[in-house]
Each structure stands twice: as C-alpha cells, then as structure tokens.
Design a protein around this nucleic acid. Structure first.
Lengths: 135, 135
DNA sequence: TGAAAACCATATAGCAGGTATAGGGTCAAG
DNA sequence: CTTGACCCTATACCTGCTATATGGTTTTCA
C-alpha cells in the first residue's frame, strides 16, 4: 500500500505520516524502485494506534513511551497505568482551571450591558484595572 | 524604568516584553543613548492589560483588537461584548470536550488492574483495537 | 503519441506564544 | 581592572502538524 492509501485509510494527511516517520513513531517502510514508500498492515495498525492515542490527548512523546511498552510484552504494566493516571489528572486540572476561567469571564461580561461607548465599557475597565471581583 | 524592572513588575520574562513589542502589542519605548529601552507607567499599564487578557485565555490577536477599541473611546462597545461572548462560548465548548475526554480516559483506565504484564494490559489493547465502548 | 492529472519525493517555512541560546556592548562595585 | 549584572540583536527551538516550492513518476484519456 502506498502512502496515499494509508493516509486515506487512517484519515490523516500524507504529510502527517511522513512527519510521524521523522519523529520515530512510525518505522521507515520499504521503498519501491522509484523511491515510493510501501506500507503493510503492520504500519496501518501502528498509525491507527497513534491516532487513537492522539484522540485521547496524548503527546507524541507519551505515545512513544507506550509503543516501547508494547515492544516489551513481558514487563509489568504499572507504568502504563501510571501514564494514564497522570494524564487523567492533567485533564481534570485543565477542566477545573477552565471552569474558573469561565466564571471570571462571565463576571467580566456582566460588567457591560452593550449600550455604552468604549470609554464607559465595564469590560475594558475591568481588564485595565484588574478588578478584585475578577480574581 | 528599564526592561528588567518592567519585567519584574509585571511578572514576565524580559524576552516576552520584547516579543510583544515585535508583535505590535507594546509601542516601542524611547531609548537611552546606549540603546537601552526606557519605559514609563503607560507601558506598564499596557503590559498588565496584555497579561490580564492572556490570563483570560485571549489570543494576542484578540488583545490587539481590544487595544484598538481602547483607542477609539467614542465607538459603541458592542464589538467588545461580542468578542467576550465568543470567547465564553469557546471556553464552554472546550470544557465539554474535555469532560467527554475524561470519561473516555476513565473507561480506558478501568481496563487494567495494574497486576498484569504489558502483553495482557487492557489499556494497551484498548488503544490498539479501538474498542467500541471507548468512543 | 503526447499532454494533463494524479501521485510521489525532498526540503523548507509557517502557525501560537513564547523560551533559550549565541555573541556581543555597558555600567557599577570591589 | 576585572567581575558580575544588566542590556542589545539575531536566531533557533518547542508541539503537532500544515503548506509551499520544486521536481520526478505514473496513469489516463483524447
């Protein structure tokens, strides 16, 4: 299978595949005489693994770590669990800080009723003065 | 005041100040004979404004737009309100998608009990197979 | 047969919002 | 008179791609 077909199969851009290869996440495939990359089912699996991890918000570095665990099937998987736990913790922290941000933004928004000049806009002055009610 | 003092006052890196200047968010300050930048209270206010907006998750482009409204105090401030409303909407969408992600991650995490080999780890196989329970 | 479309290759630059580094000039204190 | 703290510019790096320039190959269709 050539790179275009693999890209379509996995729903990614061709460039992205070459990028993963440069990053060491996809092993370099064989080449045809003309230099074209030729992929097998193996590569497709790995690519889909990467995309699935990405959809879980994992970094390419984390994915590399996971791949290394795949290659050592005898090792205990505590590290995998730890990686995921860390990740979940991070996501929860992000959610919490976004909630706080939302509250601040809503408070700030309530400072202006839409019917003024910029001069009197409570939002701009809120941003200028660092109002105590906002943090 | 020199750049180091301004940086300390605003709690930012010196490089960041120069970066904002290059981006057109901070007006170029006067220079001493030796080329050192000299800032006044005005600059400090603008820098703090930028940082406050950044802490609200606004992009540098959005901040530039807000600054342009500051410079036209006679204009109605509907656009400012709209900018903030858009921003709030985006934050809420982010929160929602992070919540969904959190659920998926927790489900994935529950596939492994920590006591196996990588080979049998439910997390790795979940990532490999694209389990239906996960999406 | 020949030209255009569709595919592939590499190398390089760009996005955001900075941060870091290299290689210098300036200035005050000991 | 040298050390250290400060400042300057220019440039590269970070993440995770995406886009562009430039060129080779293969397929298709008239």
């Amino acid at each position: 299978m050539r790179i275009g077909q693999l890209a379509q199969l996995a729903g990614v851009d061709i460039q992205t595949i070459r990028f993963y290869e440069r990053q060491g996440l996809l092993p370099p495939p064989n080449r045809q005489d003309n230099g074209y990359r030729t992929y097998k089912a193996d590569h497709a699996e790995r690519l889909l693994f990467i995309r699935r991890c990405r959809s879980f918000g994992m970094s390419l570095e984390e994915i590399g770590v996971l791949q290394s665990y795949q290659e050592q099937p005898q090792q205990p998987c505590t590290a995998i669990n730890a990686l995921l736990d860390t990740h979940i913790t991070q996501v929860r922290a992000q959610i919490a800080s976004l909630h706080a941000l939302e509250n601040q933004l809503v408070t700030l928004r309530s400072c202006c009723d839409n019917e003024r000049q910029s001069l009197d806009c409570g939002i701009l002055s809120g941003l200028l003065e660092g109002d105590k009610t906002l943090s």
